[in-house]
Amino acid sequence: MAIADTTATDDRVADRPASAKKPMRLFRNLMPKLALTPMALTAVVVFLGGTIWTVVYSFTSSGLLPRLDWVGLEQYDRLWSTTKWIVSIQNLALYGFLSLIFTLVIGFTLAAMLDRKIRGEAVFRTIFLYPFALSFIVTGLVWQWILNPDYGVQGVVRSLGWESFTFNPLNNPDIVMYGLLIAGLWQGTGLIMCIMLAGLRGIDEDIWKATRVDGIGTVKTYVQVIIPMMRPVFVTSVVLIASGIIKLYDLVVAQTSGGPGISSEVPAKYVMTAMFGGQNLGQGFAASSMMLLGVVIILVPWAFLEFGGRKKRV
């Protein structure tokens, strides 16, 4: 597209004999380019440079300080033979899958309900969005207390007379990830709801009128007409949710610190513990390189489909 634009302007310039000098391409739109330079440099040096540096040093035996002492794939060997890493990956997969689905479903349902022009919409919107204003650390601590068997939900229900009631996810290795998931959803769905609501508001009123004329039910309209029209909104939401899943760390630290045992460990926490607790930078770099690889494997085909496809359509 950019190329097409340039040739078009070039033609116009050539048509006009008065402006004899052809402006150089490099200096066209100079101000925006200047303004973009710092960000471009940051992206290249900090993100790309940092990434390459990390991957390179993951092949060394760096301990407390980075040093170029090559050990080949030793760090990766150790990584994949460590139970904690395997558990971390499984936990992240479970959390990621459920978090993605439930955030989208709950976020959209809440937004659709608010969009029905209910009374006190602003109040509900604030209430739903409010948890997002809290950091993961606070969220984690709050839910640690709510899920505490003695003082939280279980304690309250038991004190109401249901003595055998048991709801103690944070101390049960089998379901601890669901305890984290509840807190994560509580914190994150509000934002997705707001984005979805903005998307719903962007739908033309005439669409609704047309479906009403055709006699299509509300739910069917949502599923078959509105949701396909909101594709860009869903893409934004998925990107936001996915990046939140990958960096899942502070919630775990605050709520369970990886416990009981190692049953709620996540990859980001593995990286932090290896680098700063264990003074083993090489191992931490290897683990973070694997995280990057995972993101790339999932993201590249998807981005290709999503954004590559659109270019062809235009």
Binding site: G63, T82, T83, K84, P173, G259, P260, G261, I262, S263, T273, A274, G277, G278, Q279, N280, Q283
Partner: peptide, 19 residues
């Protein structure tokens, strides 16, 4: 023991303790 080894032992012992 190096901090690295201590981290590994921490992980192992807590895994045993809870499983």
């Amino acid at each position: 023991l190096s901090p690295d080894t201590i981290t590994q032992l921490n992980d192992l012992m807590t895994q045993f303790w809870n499983d």
